[in-house]
Design a protein around this nucleic acid. Structure first.
Lengths: 175, 175
DNA sequence: CCCAGTCGATTCGTTGACCGAACCAACACT
DNA sequence: AGTGTTGGTTCGGTCAACGAATCGACTGGG
């Protein structure tokens, strides 16, 4: 977590994962990346995160190969951050944690619902499709607002009010 | 995370989960609980965590219903912390994160290997049994040291050098 | 050319969580 | 009485997070 000290001595895959992805805000940044957020200003507006912290997290995730920073426009220079294959493989972990939170820490029901885009079935708690029985890769998952949906009013929240496929860019950024 | 501010406004199950379980050390405490660690002093010895922080985390997890603090002996008074059903349901998330870390952030291979106790098959990346095809509940999982096992020398690390079933107490504490 | 606006940051002073060592209370054993 | 174990609490010091202000590169408008 790079919070003063690392988890030195914890010879454990979990500890190593947490040093990168366990810092404050980091997993929420990754979650937004799955939602299709790609630009600094959109992360900023959706997360209410201090600018310096966002810049640091994006840099760390890029350095670790979870995100790829690429210039999609040269005049003026504009960069976007996109999940790499390594980043996309965080989906099961993200899904499991989020599902756990929804089941045990929520009073209003989930704020977003995930379903298999091919058959419309809501995902099970491991991210699998109950009717097909197989784990669903994120690009085949559709997000929709759920019963506990919030009332934020930033461009990202507004765009997420309609069904959206994971990993698809939220805004028509030049690919 | 209760780090200065909470994730106010992040109306999201993931954010709620992270406020509890996303703080530094917390998931490692839960991991140790799955390993069968139950006593304050054992967490302390295995994690190299500041005493105050451990006390705070155990209290928070207990308050949230993830751990159950119970007195297993009255003279002298001794308490143990045991995973509740809610806590045990964190297993898929823990497994997914740990597996991700092992695949992408490890140079020596996993420090511990998990396998289905009924058939001996090593678990897949979602915590499922590749040969049975079903998700394996933690009480049916066996931990063994893996190729990247460390060289710590505390009672917990020593006890974990031999195969051990998850959730079983590491030491013969009176149940 | 000049000015306002946007994007992606960096800088800075303050707050607060984490760290590690010391201390403490309750109890058991000798 | 003295020593040891367990399960904490207390206390400075340090370092990361916070939020506001600033900045540099660029564009489009007048």
């Amino acid at each position: 977590m790079a919070l003063g000290k690392d988890y030195a001595g914890q010879d454990c895959s979990l500890a190593r994962a947490l040093e990168l992805v366990g810092e404050r805000w980091t997993l929420l940044v990754v979650r937004d990346a799955f939602y299709g957020v790609r630009r600094y200003s959109d992360f900023l507006a959706h997360l209410d995160i201090p600018r310096a912290v966002l810049a640091e997290r994006l840099q760390a995730l890029t350095a670790a190969g979870v995100l790829d920073k690429r210039r999609y426009q040269h005049a003026p220079p504009r960069d976007e951050y996109v999940l790499t294959e390594i980043g996309r493989e965080l989906w099961p972990a993200l899904r499991a944690l989020s599902s756990w939170g929804a089941r045990h820490l929520s009073d209003t029901g989930p704020s977003r619902v995930f379903s298999h885009v091919h058959c419309g079935t809501p995902l099970g708690r491991f991210g699998e499709c109950p009717s097909c029985g197989d784990p669903v890769p994120p690009q085949d998952v559709e997000v929709r607002p759920g019963p506990g949906a919030g009332t934020r009013d930033d461009p990202v929240s507004r765009a997420l009010r309609q069904p959206h496929r994971l990993l698809e860019p939220l805004f028509g950024a030049p690919s």
